[in-house]
């Protein structure tokens, strides 16, 4: 495998992991805040949060170009130029992965028995302790599902990433891009190993997550049914 293909592979994993981390923390936080809140404009806010899920990736990419560009309203958040660096790829992947995390986490929090949370409060637990010891463990299966989907989406991200990070080999070129451009050039000797590795890695991650969650979560979920 060429150095460039290897670099693309490593970058992909790094981008997907970071993007999943960002999307999961923000997704779980938003989901928790909105799951039981009622305020005017809530539906509107939720629609905006879910928008990246339904928009074509190129539209998300274009939006990010406008927001993060030199004169964009979000340019101040990041020091220096963020577009066409691999950080832009992280941002693009996180944005498209966020709705999957948010949606799953919200459904999971809403399904938690509210009286168990209230019982924790009457037993002397403050909001932080209630969240980490009751809400989060009870919502865990749904959050896990969101995590898996968000990671898959981040790893496969192509359109928006291409627009905001470009396809600079060794710098911003991720595995999906390397595969696309290799196939387009008829270079199957580069494409096939990349495909095989991505396939194996994705399989291993999903398999591990499932195994882990079934050992952590299913024992009590099964007892619940039985």
């Amino acid at each position: 495998m060429s150095d460039e293909a290897l670099a693309a592979l490593l970058l992909s994993f790094r981008v997907a992991l970071l993007a999943t981390a960002v999307a999961s923390v923000s997704g779980v936080a938003c989901a928790r805040l909105l799951a039981r809140a009622q305020f005017p404009g809530k539906e509107m806010l939720e629609a905006v949060l879910l928008l990246p899920l339904v928009l074509p990736p190129t539209v998300v990419g274009f939006g990010l170009l406008l927001l993060l560009g030199r004169k964009g309203p979000l340019a101040w958040v990041f020091p220096g130029q963020v577009l066409f660096t691999w950080w832009a790829a992280v941002i693009a992947s996180a944005v498209v992965a966020f709705p999957l995390m948010y949606q799953n986490a919200k459904a999971a929090f809403e399904s938690v028995d509210i009286n168990q949370e209230r019982a924790a409060r009457t037993l002397g637990a403050g909001e932080v302790r209630v969240f980490f010891t009751v809400s989060l463990p009870l919502a865990w299966p749904g959050i896990m599902a969101g995590l898996v989907l968000a990671f898959a989406r981040a790893l496969g991200e192509f359109g928006a990433t291409l627009m905001v990070a470009g396809n600079i080999p060794g710098q911003t070129q991720t595995a999906p891009m390397a595969i696309y451009f290799a196939v387009e050039a008829g270079d199957y000797r580069t494409a096939v190993p990349l495909v095989a590795i991505v396939l194996l890695f994705s399989f291993a991650v999903i398999f591990w997550l499932n195994w882990w969650s079934s050992n952590k979560v299913v024992p009590y979920a099964l007892r619940r049914r039985g």
């Binding site: 028995d113 009286n115 168990q116 209230r118 019982a119 924790a120 002397g124 463990p137 009870l138 009590y220």
Partner: peptide, 14 residues
Amino acid sequence: GIGFIFQTYALFEH
């Protein structure tokens, strides 16, 4: 400092 016994008991199922 008030204890509450819920009708459904609300034991932590995990």
